[in-house]
Amino acid sequence: MRVSTTVNGRSYEHEIEPRLLLVYYLRDVLGLTGTKVGCDTSSCGACTVLVDGESVKSCTMLAAQADGCAMTTIEALAVDGALDPLQEAFHDNHALQCGFCTSGMVMAAMSIIREHPGLTEADVREGLEGNLCRCTGYHNIVKAVLAGAGRQAHPVGAAR
């Protein structure tokens, strides 16, 4: 079947198998390997991307379902070598170690920040319930998301 998508501001059209999961569409078809596969059961969140501005687990969505959607992956955040404020907050707060969960964490956090105007630690912790990290113990991720929220110069994830 044929799908047309907009990913990171670029338009695409592809012929795909209906069973192709969105995460493999992004990784194998578009070569956007920043989005990871960490589990088989929508548990870990490593595959989180934004679909029409909201976080979704791209391992639990068919590429067919994304037909006509605008998507944002981790690759779109840094512009001309400058990190997005949220990425910068992850860097400044040592919120990543092996980095495998990081793109999913950042994308999930973007959605959380957008949806919680007065973001608290509890909001962040509950909001990240679907993203697993094995390295950081979450302490610094939570700090980074709070810092990133305070530092947003623009509504994150919008119109990118």
Partner: peptide, 23 residues
């Protein structure tokens, strides 16, 4: 001293390639 990690930028931008990411 707490030097920020040099490893971070490629991991934060999705540029870092893990085995499964290698073409």
């Amino acid at each position: 001293t707490p030097l920020l990690r040099k490893e971070d930028p490629p991991l934060l931008t999705g540029e870092a390639r893990f085995v499964e990411d290698l073409v």
